[in-house]
Amino acid sequence: MVPAGLKTTARILLALGGGYWASSASFALLARVLTACGMPRVDAVTLGMMLVFILYLCLILWVFAARRVWLPFWVLCGLIAAGHMAPFFFTQGH
């Protein structure tokens, strides 16, 4: 069995670090999608900047509330992957 201290540490790391990385990645993805849909880039970034904290908050709470840590773990991985894959699909970035 995994010791309780390690489990807690893993949760904290996943919530703070993983949550941060995932919300940052999805924020970048959102900004790209919105600009691709025709929103001015300054609006897209600003809107994302207001929503990203709410997303981060939800992710943190979810990681701590989930009974098993695996589901949040995979969802976070998915978000991170999606965010970092985005540049290959949206070429009109700059």
């Binding site: 897209a44 900047m49 904290f53 700059h94």
Partner: peptide
Amino acid sequence: FSGLVILGATFFPASINALY
């Protein structure tokens, strides 16, 4: 919340870097 949004560009530079 508004305090975080004010410093948002410092904490989450990812999308700015993506578009600017």
